[in-house]
Design a protein around this nucleic acid. Sequence first.
RNA 1: GGCGCGAUGGCAGAAUGGUGAUGCAGAGGACUGCAAAUCCUCCAAUGCCGGUUCGAUUCCGGCUCGUGCCUCCA
Length: 470
Amino acid sequence: MIKLFNSATRQIEPFIPIHGNKVGLYACGPTVYNYAHIGNMRAYLFEDTLQRTLRHCGYDVTFVMNITDVGHLQSDADEGDDKMALAAKREQKSPWDIARFYEEAFFRHTKMLNIQRPDIVARATEHIPEMIAMVKTLQDKGYAYESEGNVYFDVAKFPDYAAFARLKMNDQQATGRVEFDSRKQNQADFALWFSQSKFPNQIMKWDSPWGEGFPGWHIECSAMASKYLGEHIDIHCGGIDHIPVHHTNEIAQAECCFDHKWVNVWMHGAFLTVDDGKMSKSKGDFLTVDKLRADGFHPLAYRYFILSAHYRNELRFDYDILTAAQKAYQGLYEKVQEWQVAPEAPTNSPATQSYADEFWAALREDLHTPTALTVVWKVVKDETLSTGDKLALLTEFDTLLGLRLTPEVIPLSSAEETLITERGQARTDKNWAESDRLRDLLLKEHNIQVKDTARGMIWVRVLPPIEGES
RNA sequence: GGCGCGAUGGCAGAAUGGUGAUGCAGAGGACUGCAAAUCCUCCAAUGCCGGUUCGAUUCCGGCUCGUGCCUCCA
């Protein structure tokens, strides 16, 4: 039995799938008009942990993620510029080229972080008919109205609109940051379809019953989720920022469309923050996985860092903190390699089972990855276990952690072998300067740490190779 | 203004109604030609004020401070 925190009830609840052992899981994916930053990646890491935990517990998971490749407006007030069009202009490419480029970058980054690809990746631009059908249903049922060529959802028709985010509608816009829109009957109404593009050369547009245009930005997730997972889905995830607007609107349109409850469990990941607050694409200067690489950090060290905190707690990021995480991760990785050289026989000690139980219990308790990592370190330190026991346990744990702790041992290249041999010879010759130079070279250039132990010299690779890097 | 979240050792970050993990850093020691490699030991924390309780870091209330959302954003 897994327990998960449900944002809808704000409680930790036992998770019970709708259909036996099948689980429909939907996650709001990236908007591909720019690179995803490492704060975005935290959300996808959380969802990856969730999906791995569910699968470990024997559920038959169908994991769907959308790619928002339609140019949405910058503002939920339905004002502002089209992000995709802006990026296209900036980079002198078509919106489709932009979308495809950043989608590829996204999956390259997730691969480096060892985030498993969802079972179904759904592009918004490839599901316009499904969205139009949903908007039409809403209009036919009287939940939506047309105004000056656009179609809006009528919030007044859905009495529970404010319930999910516990909004107080009258106090929502006190800051006055949202501009008044005369086309709306109620200022909280949101667009389902735009036919009146204010961009003279709007490129991304499709025919619809309301004229040529493009979908509102909330409809895609509801339309695609229901297409692949049915009208009643188990879990829907996203970033915590989605609660008041995006998910609130999704619930409204989906439940009005289907006439019943839509999602059983809503899960939201907390933000990664930096010194001056939340990391944000709109600030322009943000950190990507590539940037971490360039600054000497392994993507999986970032993964380790994220696992060290609970997904619902805000987490602060800076390079000192990441450095500490990378050292810890590196130490773990090296340890496992040392065991792999010549593992001792398993002891069948009952302790191994109790560690495994403790590890998985932590995950089943609303994905407590920090506690799971603590179990990892307890295993590492436990002197009653043989290295064979430890190897078996960490191999099992790594199916969840995804830290590539027990990769195939990568053989030395001939160049590396030569360096190590030469270093051994220099050492035999007591030519310490040369031997230290070669040791340093192996570490810096080949990521190989040479260690002199009582049993002689051994070597380990410092960090695993990076997946998806050319 | 509304809706949230948080405050634990030097840093990060768990847990818990009855003396609080883990990692990094730091100190000391062992080993080593040396070592950022290995091993051992140690250091050190629950924001403030009340309440409930035999007992609170944990529950409740207030305060202070920090932070997120209410425009796109994970």
